[in-house]
Computed example of a mutant assay.
Amino acid sequence: MDRDALDVALDEAFATTARGLSEWPDPRVGWEPGRSPPQEWYSRVLDPDKYRLLGARWAAWVRVLTEAGLAELKDGDAAEWHDLPGVVVTGTARLVPSAAGALPLVVAHTRIDETPDAGVAVGVGDPAWMVAVIPFCGCDACDDGSDPLVEELDDAVWGVVSGAFRLVRDGDRRVLTLGPMSARLWSAQGEFEPDEPAQWLADPGGRTLVQGQAWDAV
């Protein structure tokens, strides 16, 4: 699967699915280094509707992957999760790949403030393991603009579609990667030694390993 060609198709689809929505810049551009947002920004979301751009990006992915014959969109209302965090889910969809051994994507639309379909929570597998909650925090103080959020969603989806996704678990500790340069670490209990995440990914040993084939595998 050629990522460059996919990106072209994705942007073309996004131009349609995002109609009426707008990208937005980082509100801190031009600030002095080290300057913190005003305290009141941490408790407000002036424009939660803008985050609906993420749902439009997901819809673009759905269009591209289904039109390529790589997956089928399914109702996700009955989807089960291993580890859905404290978000308010307002709708769920499953994108089920055609390739044997490939992992399905589960995306939940989440409420931010009074907007029911603002954020997205991306999961993989059945039941689904959490990959990303975007935005992780929708308050104005944590807003870096739309580009990093769209990129995070793209990385999560592409990591699964390309077959690069790997999750290694040992109790409440887990290491998740979406590709060679995007290792992520979540530690629910205790701490990891500096080299542990890479060691886990290189050799899961007796730990639980979750991974799948690329969606275009034959």
Rank of each mutant, 00 (worst) to 15 (best):
R28H: 13
L53S: 05
P85V: 10
D154R: 08
Q211N: 05
G163E: 06
R111N: 04
L105E: 05
D117H: 14
S22I: 04
G34A: 07
V29N: 05
F136K: 10
A78I: 07
D7R: 14
T17A: 12
A15E: 12
W200S: 01
K74F: 10
C137Y: 03
M130P: 07
L73N: 09
Q39L: 14
E151C: 12
P27L: 11
G171K: 01
V89C: 07
L95T: 08
P27Y: 13
L46C: 06
A198H: 09
D143K: 07
C137K: 04
T110C: 10
P116M: 06
E32V: 08
R52W: 10
G205C: 10
L73F: 05
L201Y: 01
A108L: 03
L153D: 01
G76Y: 08
V89F: 03
W186F: 10
V160P: 07
V124A: 11
D126P: 08
V29D: 08
P33Y: 02
Q189K: 14
W129E: 09
Q211I: 00
A78S: 13
V106C: 12
G190I: 04
R166A: 05
A156R: 00
D117P: 03
L201H: 02
D155K: 05
W24R: 13
E193M: 08
V8W: 01
A198C: 02
R28V: 02
T177F: 00
T17V: 15
P116G: 01
L65M: 03
W158Q: 02
V96E: 14
D49R: 11
G91C: 12
L65S: 09
F136L: 10
D11V: 11
R111D: 04
P116N: 06
L103H: 09
D11L: 13
A121D: 12
P116I: 03
R207K: 11
D172C: 02
Q189H: 14
A99V: 03
G69P: 01
R52Y: 07
V29H: 07
V124R: 03
A79I: 08
T115F: 02
V122M: 14
G206D: 15
R173L: 09
D2K: 00
W41V: 06
R174F: 00
W81F: 15
D113S: 15
V45P: 02
I112C: 04
E80Q: 15
L53D: 03
A59Q: 12
P197K: 00
E114G: 06
M181A: 15
A108I: 08
P48T: 09
L21P: 13
D47S: 09
R111H: 08
P197Q: 00
L103A: 10
A9G: 12
R28A: 13
L176H: 09
R173F: 02
W158F: 01
A183T: 15
A188C: 08
D75A: 15
S146M: 11
M181E: 15
W129S: 11
P37C: 05
D49A: 15
Q39H: 08
V160L: 01
A100P: 08
D140P: 06
Y42S: 13
Q211W: 02
A164T: 01
D26F: 11
G55S: 09
W24D: 11
C137I: 07
L153Q: 01
W61I: 02
G20P: 05
P127Q: 14
W129T: 03
K50Q: 07
